[in-house]
């Protein structure tokens, strides 16, 4: 199943609207005072969770592609990754503006002294070069291999995101545990593929020539 370019365009549009939906609902909730007694906390929490969710959705693209054979899914990955970054920036803005109200001294102290904030901030800083090199020209300029190496930074970013969530929770770690388990699965899969690949090369001595793993796909549309 491979959609035509036109169909893919339609899929992307729908996905774009879907990705904006949480932001829209939060905005409405804020305007209608429907975010509970502590709307700033609710907003901080929600934008943070959506950042983590989008990171994990982005990390799901490759396994999904491998197991379904739907290679076109990779064409949606950039948008998902950029949404993760956008929600992350909103999360930071909520903290800087609404929570701390630009109290730079307090913010600097928080980043240095509070491990959970240090880790969260580091994750967002690491996301920035990925967002900045997400357009086609940057991929061409860096070259596929280097670009890919850089974008593997999403693995530590996802881990930092989970740690950030885990450390801020007072006691009930159920939620961060769920995110951590999903992250572990997604990263574990990749480690396992690597190991299989290594063994194959050791024993068989041949490179995988066919099958979904070996297929070369373009990750962007060249014009």
């Amino acid at each position: 199943m491979t959609p035509t370019n036109q169909q893919l365009g339609a899929i992307k549009t729908v996905l774009f609207v879907l990705c904006l939906l949480p932001a829209f609902l939060l905005w409405r909730g804020l305007e209608m005072d429907a975010l509970g007694a502590n709307p700033i906390e609710a907003l901080t929490r929600a934008t943070g969770e959506w950042t983590l969710r989008f990171l994990l959705i982005t990390l799901t693209v490759t396994p999904l592609r491998k197991y379904t054979g739907w290679h076109w899914l990779v064409r949606l990955r950039r948008m998902l990754g950029l949404f993760a970054f956008a929600y992350g920036v909103t999360h930071l803005l909520t903290y800087v503006w609404l929570d701390q109200f630009f109290d730079w001294q307090a913010i600097a102290k928080d980043i240095l002294k509070r491990p959970f904030i240090t880790v969260g901030f580091a994750a967002l800083v690491l996301m920035t070069p990925l967002a900045a090199t997400s357009f086609n020209a940057a991929i061409r300029r860096l070259g596929g291999r280097r670009w890919q190496a850089l974008h593997r930074a999403i693995y530590p970013i996802a881990v930092l995101g989970c740690v950030h969530f885990w450390w801020l929770v007072k006691k009930d770690i159920t939620q961060p545990l769920i995110y951590a388990a999903i992250t572990a699965t997604l990263l574990g899969l990749r480690a396992w593929w690597r190991e299989q690949e290594r063994r194959k090369q050791l024993t068989g001595g041949y490179l995988p020539a066919h099958g979904p793993t070996g297929k070369i796909i373009r990750i962007f549309q060249s014009h």
């Binding site: 007694a37 502590n38 700033i40 906390e41 609404l98 929570d99 701390q100 109200f101 307090a106 102290k109 928080d110 002294k113 509070r114 491990p115 959970f116 450390w167 801020l168």
Partner: peptide, 16 residues
Amino acid sequence: PRWSQATERRIGEFSK
């Protein structure tokens, strides 16, 4: 140990 206790948000207020 994990967060500051210097300020607080009074529920219903914007500034800390």
